[in-house]
Amino acid sequence: MNGLTHINAAGEASMVDVSHKAASAREALAEGYVRMQDKTLAMILDGEHAKGDVFAVARIAGIQGAKQCANLIPLCHPLMLTKVQVDFEPQPQQNRVRILGRCKLSGQTGVEMEALTAVSIAALTLFDMCKAVDPGMVIEGIRVLDKQGGKSGHWRAQEKA
């Protein structure tokens, strides 16, 4: 590890200068989970939620979140994303929904924060839409699974124990 990159020589917060870096294809995949009551998940899957298609709304929110990452996280670079994908994997055995966020671009810096933001905003939207029927939902396990591109190459998270 090279130390903190968002701190300048004076110890002040600083946006990293990436102007000297060559553009390359970059991609990141993140995941997160929303744990809920079994009846809440059944309601979502059966399309019986009074607010409509929960996954459709949360997907759009996640995509919008990735596009707004630099406005939400102070030292993130504004990026020209070429792909944002948000997918949902219902896991009824664990009473949860797995959320996957994938971001791609050709640029000078990575897209991990955008993928994490997509997952986070999708999870928050799912929570918001269902909180009236299940205020005890838990958002958990948000992390980067895989990142590719740039000088550091390919990185993959270790499997959870």
Rank of each mutant, 00 (worst) to 15 (best):
L145T: 04
G153H: 04
K67S: 02
D146N: 04
I60E: 15
V111E: 11
G141Q: 08
K131Q: 13
K51M: 05
A42K: 12
M129S: 06
V16I: 15
S106R: 12
G3F: 10
T125E: 02
K151T: 01
D17E: 15
N95P: 03
G101W: 00
R102A: 04
M43W: 11
H49L: 06
H6S: 06
A132Y: 10
K51D: 01
M137W: 09
P135D: 11
R26P: 06
E27M: 12
N95L: 00
A23Y: 04
Q37S: 07
I142Q: 12
D128R: 07
G32Y: 10
L41N: 12
Q93R: 10
Q94S: 14
E140A: 12
Q85Y: 05
R26Y: 00
C103M: 05
E12Y: 10
D134K: 09
D38T: 14
E48Q: 15
A9C: 11
Q91R: 12
F55G: 06
I44T: 07
R143I: 07
F88R: 03
K147T: 00
Q94P: 08
Q85S: 14
I121N: 02
L45F: 09
A123W: 08
E159D: 15
S120P: 07
M137C: 10
E159R: 14
A61S: 12
S24I: 01
